[in-house]
Design a protein around this nucleic acid. Sequence first.
DNA 1: CTGAAAGCGCTTACAG
DNA 2: CTGAAAGCGCTTACAG
Lengths: 318, 318
Amino acid sequence: MSRGTVSRVLNGGRYVSTAALAAVERAVAATGYVANSSARSLATRRSGAVAFVLTEPQERLFEDPNFHVLLRSCTQALAERDVVLMLMLAGTPAEHERVLRFVRGQHVDGMLLVSTHLGDPLVAEASRSGLPVVASGRPLGHEHDVRSVAADDRGGARAMVEHLLGRGRRRVTTVAGPQDTSGGVERLAGYFDVLGRRARAVDVVAADGWTHDAGERAMARLLEQVPDLDAVFVASDLMASGALATLRRAGRTVPGDVAVGGFDDSRVAVQVEPALTTVRQPLEEVGRRMVELLLAQVAGEEGEPVVLPTELVVRSST
Amino acid sequence: MSRGTVSRVLNGGRYVSTAALAAVERAVAATGYVANSSARSLATRRSGAVAFVLTEPQERLFEDPNFHVLLRSCTQALAERDVVLMLMLAGTPAEHERVLRFVRGQHVDGMLLVSTHLGDPLVAEASRSGLPVVASGRPLGHEHDVRSVAADDRGGARAMVEHLLGRGRRRVTTVAGPQDTSGGVERLAGYFDVLGRRARAVDVVAADGWTHDAGERAMARLLEQVPDLDAVFVASDLMASGALATLRRAGRTVPGDVAVGGFDDSRVAVQVEPALTTVRQPLEEVGRRMVELLLAQVAGEEGEPVVLPTELVVRSST
DNA sequence: CTGAAAGCGCTTACAG
DNA sequence: CTGAAAGCGCTTACAG
């Protein structure tokens, strides 16, 4: 039996007689034969692997539960299609360079770009390279060059601010996320959508990171600027946990004195006291859709940017 | 200039004249040429990739900060050597099968096995396959078949129990980890090392998982069995956070009524109230050493199991 | 349906 | 030091 016939069986069994097919399958089962993947990749010009690139200081991989959800759902969705996930950190310029060299070596069929920032050179390079790329969140400045899967940040933020007003709050402020990310920009836009001219400059403080500590600092600044605030929409649950710490230290009760709304519905939302009213972002699905979109692109299919709905989740903090 | 000369330059520049070397380097810089990795792998029989296999229900990837530290330090240590990390989940039998098929396809040069359990078929298969493997923690039942990097669980547990006794506690109990993992077994052994015959069967409850919830349940059982306990050594910080919740609900103060000691010195140790006295496990270094040991093995070098020292960290819970 | 053969893009003895 | 050539282990038109 020729090498060619075996190969045909292994690749779907088209154009093979049932007899040959059975014989090969028996032999494969008996010997535990598995095709060498480098040779296959070389012949097919497909690696069967995809890079998951974290464009972010690595601390965030530690701290932010959102990444774990995304990483897990992507790994799983890829595994179901027998594609492997290569984890790459691209926080420093050196790592950055390594990622680029890596994709140029045709080591991967595509790239999952997570948490991109405005002016991120990797996004530009990736889209220029022609390699299939899908970003999580709309990549600021490259909305049309790179496909993406995002949650409806703006709509979710609107729902939260309306909820806060519906609770009778008069002075609704916000701790915005860093404004070099689409999540940061969009959630702030949603805030303005609802409050319009009623929002004053002092009611808004943009945090200098998506971390607990950044939320803590931003909340302190906000309290100084607006001592009589009675509500705050914080652009992520993790930052909101920091905001809660600041409020507690300042002697303000939640939700008595101040109603606090978060965003994400991540694990921390229920770990803090009081549990956070927040906006649920379907990150599991974001991961799945990113994988679908990427593999479709690898297969040469068209694809539209995806925006997934968000949902208000009311708990005890508002 | 021949393909062979270019290849020699790219692979270290041995046996190449300075003139040729400079010319090639100039050309590479100008064109951005990067060798195709499949072709290189096929020729060298090295993939330049390593699998990071999580032998665990995936929830743990979400919940347990220890994994993030390990994942990050391995990714980083590998990247420094230009080796790629492939993340594989092996929680279900199907995923399991996929991992095996994958390594048989010679897709990776080695395997980092994280959080193995007693009777884990993957460990046996991996060691039998001849593929270089390094486990985190000593793989129960395969201590001599598979190289490993572990923390000194037993010594750390001893230090904690001695600390508890040093605080004047009379009834020192323990919530042990699952007894099908080396961490669970060793930390319990350390407890017995110190208490010896003073420990009674009722003083020990083994949790049915390494989670917050499992710690919560185990602590409840322990309180029923030993209502007058005044100290508990919990085998992980995450489980200890669950134990704290149970104690709070039962109206016991910490450390007033009950001293609580954890293990790991993970992020949760300082997130809970009161901050946990715990045993620091140098997970960053565990990851680094795992990578070193694995790559040495790939290069055909010998290697000994590594055990890293642990350290007592005293905070407010004892 | 099947086999023989070319080709995927490298690396590495081998001669020189 | 360098080039020509074999070989790594597959896939896939191409004839038949």
